[in-house]
Design a protein around this nucleic acid. Sequence first.
DNA 1: TCTTCAGGTTGATTCACATCAAGGTGAATT
DNA 2: AATTCACCTTGATGTGAATCAACCTGAAGA
Lengths: 251, 251
Amino acid sequence: MTIHLKQSEDAAFKSCAHDYQVNCGNCRLNSICLPLALESDDIQQLDDIIQRSKPLQKNQHLYRESDHFQSVYAVRSGTLKAYKTTDDGREQVTGFYFPGEILGMDGISNNTHASSAKALETAAICEIPFTSLEKLSALMPNLQRHFFQLMSHEITEDQQLITLLSKNSADERVAALMLSISGRNARRKLSATQFRLPMSRVDIGNYLGLTVETVSRVFSRMQKMEVLRVDNKEIEILDTQGLKNMANLGG
Amino acid sequence: MTIHLKQSEDAAFKSCAHDYQVNCGNCRLNSICLPLALESDDIQQLDDIIQRSKPLQKNQHLYRESDHFQSVYAVRSGTLKAYKTTDDGREQVTGFYFPGEILGMDGISNNTHASSAKALETAAICEIPFTSLEKLSALMPNLQRHFFQLMSHEITEDQQLITLLSKNSADERVAALMLSISGRNARRKLSATQFRLPMSRVDIGNYLGLTVETVSRVFSRMQKMEVLRVDNKEIEILDTQGLKNMANLGG
DNA sequence: TCTTCAGGTTGATTCACATCAAGGTGAATT
DNA sequence: AATTCACCTTGATGTGAATCAACCTGAAGA
């Protein structure tokens, strides 16, 4: 089972590497990543400013906190985590980024990245130089609108997380994360009920403000309740409604 | 003491009401609110799209969650809180907004406000219709850049709060909020060490993921440690360095 | 003046999660 | 096949903040 999914990931990655010069027009993520009502000419212009470099290996950084900000990034394959390092050296994971999602926008305000981003597994990335994006946005109202919306979306997501951290129990937090990942998979036409977690328990705990031990116990509990089947990083949602009830959010 | 500060607030407000047709060019907050390297002609254009309506009374809403999104808002005087209502009816305060700060940007992503905003005291507001802002942004690179930065700043602020909620103790959270308010006062050339909290203990607790009782106890503790003098909503910071140590952030 | 009520404080008790401690598992290395 | 190491799980115990409860304070209204 584990092996099966690994293979499919590798296959997906190979097709990307092979398609090294994919462009936005033919990228299968474009409906998620840049759902612009664009003329093909517009897409071409956008495509021209985007840089596709060689894939990031697991644990490689895309950028680090306090790096000079130059670009935002779209994930084409793989997963990344964004995190801040607190002054006493601890980490705070601020987000996970899946294919089709954009990261790096927190660097705009200071011309300095406010967080670090590293690959949780091999990842292909599209780099979008920000000054070019700004210029193009001024010419293409749809694009400008889209980026305002993307940033606004990041704000609402962060506010969701704030609420989660401040109001919800360990069970609810983990349930909410599983539902979030499930939903993001569905958006990419992957299974909403079966998937492999790209991140460790430590990262999950860190993101949700919990310790590893607590995360582990929650998974055990969910398994006992037959809401989830957990096999290491392999997750199967057995009872979506049960999970939603458990998350206690918008059910 | 309390009376003294109330008077100065009222005075500030009256000068606003009197200056009903203040414009961005002569607004004393413009260096904070819209620190654009603008030609006066640009300022005039921006000013033309901004609407100044009659002040909000205490507890009045500026907008509500799920209202149709049309504008973002700048605070000219007074304070507002933004909050979300969870499905089980509880509130999560997501931010406090002081004069010179912009709110409402979380509505852009869905054309629907993702939170509600209400006045914590009488407040004067500048309304900035978003479609006009978009059009103007396309023409004025500085303005476009500035709004990207504002939104990015909101993201980094939210991420700060996420870290605070997930990693810091009650003492640290309250200390961090006091320092934040102090800093925002300083930005407006007000005292960094003496101010009146516009929000209740309940709101503070709600924002910081704590109960009222805990907030109250933290204030008592800080007072005993002679870091703060607390007289109801009147705050005096007695030992800024002590407070910073207590916050345990960037000390 | 008395009452009411919202907002705040303080103390006693409880509880969810952290911490500490010990093992388990499986992939990579030798 | 044995060793190592990162990652995960489970159990026992401790603790910071929530909860429950009582009371205080001051403004608003009768």
